[in-house]
């Protein structure tokens, strides 16, 4: 009888992983950012095991999808490796910080931080793909020293795009924090990586997203070995989520190809913002700053995320449509 129950529970987690993988891949935020809220809020998994499982699935999806990306020769391995100097250091600092967090039972900090990270990631992710070309900038001294130039073939524009990166040092600083968040929360922190390369280093969006995907695996591998020896990885959970999230990510990338109407993605953004608010509220409740019943938390999260996503939609999507008309 226990065999059947364990198997059913396993399938249930795989299903949760598939959902996380789909949402993560359609929104471009990655499976981990969705998996941890789903596991902690709906499956009652302690955040310590949820983040451990998430790190493992992050490596699986990064490796699975980096294959397709590097094949199209868009990812810049050189820039990626250079920035990994900072992300791996950050990952070590982050995963060591986590051991202290659990030692002093400060789990609420992780919930709150997780909520904030999801909510702040939505804005740059919504904005993604808005500007296809990059601004033409003067190369600085780091462009030459760190050989930040490259080119790729853009299938939509049907031409080869050449680019030059700048401000390598600023990219490194942002990457350190991206790595630290990855170690703390068990996510790929793709949004912050994209910010570092797109905003700070002026790299084209296509190069940024694909290179970030390739980097995420190396960052997560650094953290997960520390997680392993600390006992933060629960096999049963990690096995189920790795399988689920990988399947979900594959389905998600297929869905993404079929979505011609951009508005569909907003449904997923709405789910994401709901999960973000829920995580933040759960953090405040665990830290005994507020007292809320599960149902109250649900209503408040629905209300806040509803307002948030509608205002974001109005700001970005309507503005975009007006821009197209002019």
């Amino acid at each position: 009888m226990t065999e059947v129950m364990t198997l059913l529970k396993f399938i249930e987690i795989v299903a949760g992983g598939i959902i996380a993988g789909i949402i993560g891949s359609v929104t471009g935020l990655g499976g981990g950012s969705v998996l941890v809220p789903i596991l902690t809020l709906f499956y009652g998994v302690p955040i310590i095991f949820a983040t451990g499982a998430s790190l493992i699935s992050t490596i699986a999806t990064s490796a699975g999808s980096a294959g397709t990306y590097t094949k199209k020769k868009i990812a810049n391995v050189k820039i990626g490796v250079g920035l990994e100097v900072a992300t791996t250091l950050g990952a070590i600092v982050g995963s060591l910080t986590v051991t202290v967090v659990y030692k002093y039972s400060l789990e609420w900090v992780l919930y709150l931080l997780f909520g904030i990270v999801i909510l702040t990631s939505i804005v740059p992710t919504v904005n993604r793909g808005k500007y296809e070309g990059t601004k033409v900038v003067k190369p600085d001294f780091t462009s030459r020293i760190f050989q930040l130039q490259g080119k790729y073939y853009d299938q939509n524009q049907k031409k080869s795009v050449e680019y030059i990166g700048i401000r390598w040092w600023l990219g490194e600083i942002i990457m350190f924090f991206a790595g630290m968040l990855s170690g703390l929360l068990g996510i790929g922190s793709g949004a912050l990586k994209v910010l570092g390369m797109d905003w700070a280093m002026n790299l084209p969006m296509k190069v940024t997203t694909t290179t970030s995907n390739f980097m995420i695996g190396i960052t997560a591998a650094t953290s997960s070995s520390i997680y392993w020896y600390n006992g933060f990885i629960q096999f049963y959970l990690a096995a189920a989520t790795a399988i689920g999230v990988l399947i979900g990510a594959i389905i998600g990338s297929k869905i993404l190809l079929k979505i011609s109407n951009k508005d569909v993605r907003w449904v997923f953004f709405a789910i994401l913002s709901y999960l973000g608010v829920e995580m933040a509220l759960e953090g405040l409740r665990k830290g005994t700053f507020i007292s809320l019943s599960g149902l109250d938390r649900f209503y408040i999260a629905i209300a806040i995320s509803g307002i948030l996503i509608v205002s974001l939609y109005v700001i970005f999507r309507i503005g975009e449509k007006n821009g197209q008309r002019q």
């Binding site: 699986a60 490796a63 699975g64 980096a66 294959g67 397709t68 990306y69 590097t70 094949k71 020769k73 990812a75 391995v77 050189k78 490259g150 390739f214 695996g217 790795a242 399988i243 990988l246």
Partner: peptide, 20 residues
């Protein structure tokens, strides 16, 4: 760079299959 990305992409996919 092209050869490198090719090797990397094959390695990554093979590793995911083996691990799964």
């Amino acid at each position: 760079n092209e050869d490198l990305t090719k090797v990397i992409s094959i390695t990554l996919r093979a590793a995911v299959v083996v691990s799964m």
